[in-house]
Write a protein that binds this DNA or RNA. Structure first.
Lengths: 354, 354
DNA sequence: TTGTACGCGTTATCAC
DNA sequence: GTGATAACGCGTACAA
């Protein structure tokens, strides 16, 4: 039924070893035999069995990319960039085409699913694993993930953490840490400089590193202006989704009518904030300034264009892809900080004179 | 270095065959030995080698999910639902955890990448492949994809087409076809019923089946009201992105100031349309009605809430996942039509009195 | 209920 | 340059 190396060899009148050599291009083969073999491959529509190859060569062309929410462009952009970079590997001269298979795994932010996928990838002896997005901040889970990744790393699987705090692994690993704290601090600092003194904040999901870091940056900026006292009252929980922004804004307005600005933990939620404000006939930014985080593609184009913090998601994903394929060297210390840049746009302005 | 079945067997004082039986639960094993084996598995942190297992059993636990644009929630939602369903397989009693590995492959809408990924999946002897989203309408490419999928199907890989026109494959396959034509026709019909007579249209990318079907539905509705003549002038090209909606709206307004409604090929572009209108101080829907397609999560929550056509993306993705794992029976004829439901919301209203 | 032994399709190490 | 042949790690008749 399925064509094997032996079938091709028989057809070309050579040994299977020779066929293998032609396909992999590792050893010299006479041009005439090479031609015969390639023709047989064509005629039989032979396709390498990746499992057998992996077993024999102790390698795999699978690279896992773990994301928290595949429906969120934040992860889609990173995953897409990484995948393009990974698939872009040097093509085998055999004509079968080269490149590795990047497989995007959606954990849904569920710690258990994260471990399950890591085990599945471990089974496949994945060549590499990229773990993206904030980590669940649970001691037990962190321990389990660290152990699993350590094991993978020592077994030869390349590990890259992208947009996630570094982990003390046994083997080698690279971390692209996002400067969420710094970005959030500059963003809130921007609002403070504009003159805002009552700034609401809508967080991401609880117990995630990204959520905590962004909130900490926000609080740091407030503290620098002696405004820490009021922070708790002006902070409401969310989950990065648009609806959370909408509801959070409603809650904040009810709780603190004096506020003149709202910062959301990400752009998606910020759009929800804008929707809630519009519904109340509050103008952005004249009545209330709004800011997000991430600078997703739609943010430039929103009305008004959103002030936010730009994370170079595409670049970071691509770099993660190169790191995991060994096409780029691991940064010194294994950690590189990805800068978060304040992007001032139309959704923030000085507060209305009160 | 790496722990094998033999290592576990030695430690448990049994043969490797017994260990295999315990792990797969296919054959009866004495409780006492089972316990010993499982303990050895734990102690050695043994993880099955998926490649060797696949080679020996001629199976694979890999399922490919091809998407056109992973950064677009349209695909993210389908892929996420499919993946959840696929990973949700019956867990092996061995304790190693079960389920298949759903791998999302991002083609970027590039026909060549589509074929490359199919070949990569073929190499891995994937258990199944789900191809989502509109197909490139190029004769040569269609032929190539049909051949490749036929080959996969006859080799035992389950094929599911989700949101893509059916293909005449040699082997078995299931198709979940989206009623893009009917949905578009009802949507434009809705605007016509409201009294609109000058309706602009912003298409998706050229040469894609989804683009063509939605446009055809739109034209059909126009023709039913004797408005086909003006259709060409009121149609501009786009690519499903927000910016295309923005630019398309600008172009349409310049080209036909008399228009009272704009239909975008999808919700994302429709938001761009709204942004362009707001910039010109045109109110939605009082001055211009706007409609989209897909009913993505953000559409309810937009301002004003978007009239659109709901595609049950989550359900379709989940169903595709069940079909590809054989957990749901293939519909009669291999094709099931996924209905597209008109969702009337605040962005459409009767045209202003002219 | 358990062990033995072979085969799955490749790669890689020898010889020739 | 090319051909045998031994791994690679596991599933599974077959035998015990």
């Amino acid at each position: 039924m399925t064509v094997t190396l032996a079938d091709v060899a028989a057809r070309a009148g050579v040994s299977s070893a020779t066929v293998s050599r032609v396909l992999n291009g590792n050893y010299p083969v006479a041009d005439s035999t090479r031609a015969r073999v390639l023709r047989a491959v064509e005629e039989l529509e032979y396709v390498v069995n990746g499992q057998a190859r992996g077993l024999a060569a102790a390698t795999s062309d699978l690279v896992g990319v773990l994301v928290n929410d595949i429906a969120d462009p934040f992860f889609g952009i990173m995953a897409g960039a990484a995948q393009a970079e990974i698939a872009h590997g040097s093509p085998a001269s055999g004509g079968t085409g080269g490149g590795k298979l990047a497989v995007v795994c959606n954990t849904g932010g569920c710690p258990k699913a994260e471990l399950t996928y890591l085990t599945l990838l471990q089974r496949q002896r994945a060549a590499g694993v990229i773990v993206t997005g904030g980590a669940a901040e649970d001691a037990e889970h962190t321990r389990a993930v660290t152990a699993k990744l350590s094991r993978l790393a020592t077994d030869g699987t390349r590990i890259v953490l992208c947009g996630r705090p570094p982990l003390p692994l046994d083997g080698d690993a690279a971390t692209l840490a996002f400067d969420n704290r710094g970005g959030a601090r500059r963003l809130t600092g921007h609002l403070l400089e504009l003159g805002h003194r009552h700034i609401g904040y809508i967080t991401g999901p609880k117990d995630r590193s990204t959520t905590r870091h962004r909130l900490e940056g926000h609080r740091t900026a407030l503290a620098e202006h002696g405004l820490a006292a009021d922070a708790d009252r002006l902070t409401v929980g969310g989950d990065y989704h648009r609806h959370a922004g909408y509801q959070g804004a409603c809650e904040l307005l009810a709780r603190a009518p004096e506020l003149t600005a709202i910062v959301a933990a990400n752009d998606t939620a910020a759009l929800g904030v804008c929707a809630a404000l519009r519904e109340r006939d509050l103008r952005v930014p004249q009545d209330v300034s709004v800011a997000g985080f991430d600078d997703l593609p739609f943010s430039v184009d929103a009305a008004p264009a959103l002030t936010t913090v730009r994370l170079p998601l595409h670049e970071a994903g691509a770099r993660a892809g190169r790191l995991v394929t060994g096409r780029e060297e691991v940064p010194p210390g294994g950690i590189a900080m990805v800068t978060a840049q304040l992007v001032r746009r139309a959704s923030t302005a000085p507060p209305r004179a009160s």
